[in-house]
Nucleic acid binder design. Structure first.
Length: 910
RNA sequence: GGGCUGUUAGCUCAGUUGGUUAGAGCGCUACGUUGACAUCGUAGAGGUCACAGAUUCGAGUUCUGUACAGCCCACCA
């Protein structure tokens, strides 16, 4: 562990020589996080770009520990935030957590059950107090876990959906909607969870197909007046929920169904109950399904409820709120709903009322929270009229002011908003924002108020009762992008940071949260709350299954961080997926990225040690003077990856950006340039200084590019780099990498020639290495090499030292042309460059000829393909000229190759 | 019932305006301690891009259909 000194700069006065060989995330992460936070770097700064960039963090539920879903959210958002901070935007990330009404209540109730008690024993006040204790504990836990993930949010602006300010916002919204006529209280059929003992919204119901049955039951008809009724008539209906027969108040048929037209208006008799119910005609009935006649139970089915409204039918509630049968269920009163179903069917069979029972798959609604089968029931609840709120939210996307990434979710969003239903917002819970409505027992009037009321404004009575219910938890979340900034007060934050920039979250809460935020933002503030919605996929386990506690396949991000480090976890999450698609968290990948962090560490360690005392400073890229082809090449590659990564991040392609930076750092910088630098560092003093400068500069730029993805290892390296290279702190570009400038692609370094020429050098080296391998040349042995480089002779003459070192050859013998080709030598071709390895004793002439034949065949095939293409008039005429030109160049190259191979073959076989 | 996504090397995945001989990591094979890294290096093997059509000079990439896998929405009892 590295000691701290009084400057509070964690790496102060540490030389590079003492760096450990292996990167140890645990020794590094905490100290930098504390440093960043103490220095205030998570707080917004005056914009250098004139822009702000704001994200409101989706508030995790205070129900427990963070899981990988939170980790991916935090990672992607932190990437955006750190990028924009480095770019120079006034960047704000508002963190927070969600009181999560029903979820939290359920969790705490479970605790109580364990203790052998329940909330009713405790009473409302004590129960709520108990939940607050829970909240305080878990809020801190969530904060700490977010800190470990490297989340660079402004903790001083942290909010809770149930804190004072947000409660004020909730009331404001409730009252305003009421005043606008967009809020109403009414008896409707709603989804009722008999376990939670609360209404839930449509969205909180999960439909799961279950194996059920379709029971065909015949109801006797009441004989017509004046008939004897000797021949009993029947009407047959089919039902998946026989127990609701007890609450039937009609039978409905389609008005255009000739089978039943004559029965419309007659009365049927409910079996067992003996109640007389009318046969009505209603368009909602499908002629083709079942028998074409439907039993109507207005109290227990949404469609039936509607039919009941149209025909003024009575509602008989036979299933109670606790899922047992009511007194209305007669002989079945008190039974559980399924027991009642079973008994009733038995009884019906005894009566001969059951015609048949078919196997049938029914979509069964389950409570999103506790998985209990929900029951549609009538009850008095509060609703928000959504239609007029949805219209602007649709317009926001249609007009292009709001963009959804990936684009395909636009359709999902639109379809939901275009078919929106009213939102049931009252919940029969104790944990949540109490509904700000008071009922007067004296005058019976209702008062909706922003402030608590104690006397009735209508009659001055003090016999007031506040509505017992609380609000759906999403009724506070949908205000998040502005309630966190102080709304309804006109705070400076609100003025400055609303609208936000991006809403980043999982696609599973588009309806619950995202669409509703757009509605709330546009309605209450008149501005779309963010310009972009970025939706990430779900993180699944290695087998592709959804993680769940019950399956026991949850990956705990904390354990991953303990074992592999935060950077490894973050980089894995960021690069394992493409936007909107689910990803699997595969352990091998995390290991690979732990190795990447270690690679960064070691390359940096080498650069620090080997350049120590040579030249000075960490030069800015635009001041660099490349001395060699390799210098030009690496700076070109850096410029390209910088341009690409920047564009990719701007386009929300974080995974691809990360992969490209990784590839650049590992393959180009470490595998090639750092190796080459070992040669260049042996050269002249000028070359040594220049090489050291480039090594440091490219390392610096690489750390900047990687920082949003892997904040800890990059900060550690970056600090060492400046501390050991620029001892005068006032000359540092920034006090910390987190607030250093994002790299700009240096246009002067785009260098196609260097790219092409260096490619030849790389090919040459790889070919020699391969040849050595094939011929089993001992690794330590230097082999002679003769190169005929043609027009590249000049360029190659400067690369001989590289070839010597990297391909382990003797000093290459370099020619433009060879009048006399070496005999008994293996011959290789890098483009048009001829390479000869005179390994007399090792060369097997037969094998060599075979190899040449293979290459000849390959070249011929390629030439055939290219000639075919180029002789196609359509191709030449229609393809873009540069494409045609490219093909011509390729053909020429292959022809040159062919002639060289042919010549060589002739020489060898002669 | 409606909609969406995926199907690319043994495994996990990239491949965004259609344009070289389709890439990476892991795994596998061979070699390796050349002054950062064995959490490493060098080299190699490995793919009819699910299938069938269509459009095009040209398709992993666009369109249509099929199969398989998965997800979301949904008031046919």
């Amino acid at each position: 562990m590295i000691e701290q000194d009084q400057t509070s700069q964690p790496n102060a006065n540490q030389g590079a020589a003492s760096l450990p060989k292996t990167y140890d995330p645990q020794a590094v992460e905490g100290k930098w996080y504390r440093f960043w936070e103490e220095q205030g770097y998570f707080k917004p700064r005056t914009s250098k770009t004139g822009k702000t960039f704001v994200i409101s963090m989706p508030p995790p539920n205070v129900t427990g520990a963070l899981h990988v879903g939170h980790a991916i959210t935090a990672t992607i958002e932190d990437i955006m935030i750190r990028y924009h901070r480095m770019v120079g935007d006034d960047t704000l990330w508002v963190p927070g957590s969600d009181h999560a009404g029903i979820a939290t209540q359920t969790v705490v109730e479970r605790e109580l059950t364990k203790e052998g008690t329940d909330r009713h024993v405790l009473g409302r006040e004590a129960f709520v107090e108990r939940i607050w204790q829970w909240v305080h504990q878990y809020k801190h836990r969530i904060q700490d876990q977010h800190r470990r993930l490297g989340v660079s949010a402004d903790w001083e602006r942290e909010r809770f959906t149930f804190d004072e300010g947000l409660s004020k916002a909730v009331r404001e919204v409730f009252v305003r909607l009421y005043e606008e006529g967009l809020l109403y209280r009414g008896e409707r059929i709603i989804n009722w969870c008999p376990r939670c003992m609360s209404a839930i919204s449509d969205l909180e119901v999960n439909h799961v197909d279950a194996q059920g049955s379709l029971t065909y039951v015949r109801y006797p008809l009441k004989p017509l007046e004046g008939t004897t009724g000797e021949q009993t008539e029947y009407i047959q209906v089919a039902t998946t929920r026989p127990e609701t027969i007890l609450g039937d108040t009609a039978i409905a048929v389609n008005p255009h169904d000739p089978r039943y037209t004559r029965l419309i208006g007659r009365l049927a008799i409910v079996p067992v109950m003996g109640r007389e119910i009318p046969i009505v005609a209603d368009e909602a009935v499908e002629k083709e399904f079942g028998t074409g006649a439907v039993k109507v139970t207005p109290a227990h089915d949404p469609v039936d409820f509607e039919i009941g409204m149209r025909h003024n039918l009575p509602r008989v509630q036979v299933i109670d709120f606790d899922a047992t049968m009511t007194a209305e269920a007669g002989p079945y009163a008190g039974l559980d709903r399924y027991e009642a179903r079973k008994r009733l069917v038995e009884d019906l069979e005894k009566l001969g009322a059951v015609v048949k029972i078919e196997e049938y798959t029914v979509p069964l609604g389950h409570c999103d929270r506790c998985d209990t089968v929900v029951e549609p029931l009538i009850s008095k609840q509060w609703f928000v009229k959504m239609a007029s709120l949805a219209t602007p939210a649709i317009g926001a996307v249609k007009s292009g002011h709001l963009q959804i990434v990936p684009e395909r979710f636009t359709k999902v969003y639109m379809d939901w908003l275009e078919n929106i239903h009213d939102w049931c917002i009252s919940r029969q819970l104790w944990w949540g924002h109490r509904i700000p409505v008071w009922y007067c027992d004296n005058c019976g009037q209702m008062t909706v108020s922003r402030e608590d009321v104690t006397t009735c404004p209508h009659c001055d009575s003090d016999k007031l009762r506040q509505d017992e219910d609380v609000l759906d938890t999403w009724f506070s979340s949908w205000l998040w992008p502005f309630s966190t900034l102080g709304w309804p007060d006109a705070t400076p934050d609100l003025k400055h940071y609303y609208p936000n920039a991006v809403m980043e979250t999982g696609y599973d809460i588009i309806f619950f949260w995202v669409a509703r935020m757009v509605m709330a933002g546009t309605h209450f503030l008149g501005q779309i709350p963010f310009h972009t919605i970025y939706l990430h996929g779900l993180v699944r386990d290695a087998k592709g299954e959804k993680m769940s506690k019950s399956k026991g396949n949850v990956v705990d991000p904390l354990l991953v961080m303990d074992e592999y480090g935060t950077d490894a976890l973050r980089f894995t999450l960021a690069t394992s997926s493409t936007p909107g698609n689910d990803s699997k968290l595969v352990p091998e990948r995390i290991v690979g990225n732990r190795n990447f962090a270690n690679k960064i560490w070691n390359a940096s360690r080498f650069v620090l040690m080997s350049t120590s005392g040579i030249g000075e400073g960490v030069p800015a890229p635009d001041t660099l003077q490349p001395q060699t082809l390799a210098d030009r090449w690496i700076l070109n590659r850096l410029a390209r990856v910088t341009a690409n990564a920047t564009q990719l991040i701007e386009d929300y392609q974080f995974g691809e950006a990360g992969r490209q930076i990784n590839d650049f750092f590992w393959s180009d910088y470490c595998d090639w340039y750092v190796e080459i630098a070992k040669v260049q560092m042996q050269g002249s003093e000028e070359l040594r200084r220049s090489t050291a400068g480039i090594l440091r500069s490219v390392l610096d730029q690489s750390m900047r590019l990687l920082h949003p993805f892997m904040p800890f290892v990059t900060e550690e390296v970056w600090q060492y780099l400046y501390r050991t290279s620029v001892t005068d702190e006032s000359r540092w570009p920034a006090p910390a990498l987190i607030v250093a400038d994002w790299p700009l692609a240096q246009k002067q370094h785009f260098d196609a020639e260097a790219e092409q020429e260096f490619d030849l050098v790389q090919q040459t080296i790889a070919l020699i290495r391969d040849a050595r391998n094939q011929m089993n040349v001992e690794p330590a042995r230097r082999v002679p090499v003769i190169i005929a480089a043609g027009r590249y002779a000049g360029m190659f003459s400067e690369q001989t030292a590289l070839i010597e070192f990297l391909a382990r050859t003797e000093k290459p013998e370099l020619h433009a042309e060879l009048s006399q080709k070496p005999e008994k030598a293996m011959s290789l071709l890098a483009g048009s460059v001829e390479i000869y390895l005179p390994l007399a004793g090792l060369l097997d002439l037969g094998k060599e000829l075979e190899r040449l034949d293979k290459e000849l065949a390959q070249a011929q095939q390629e030439i055939g393909r290219l000639q075919g293409k180029l002789s196609n008039q359509n191709f030449v005429a229609k393809a873009k000229p540069e494409v045609v030109e490219k093909e011509r160049e390729k053909l020429a190259a292959q022809q040159e190759r062919l002639s060289k191979l042919t010549a060589r073959r002739a020489e060898l076989s002669a």
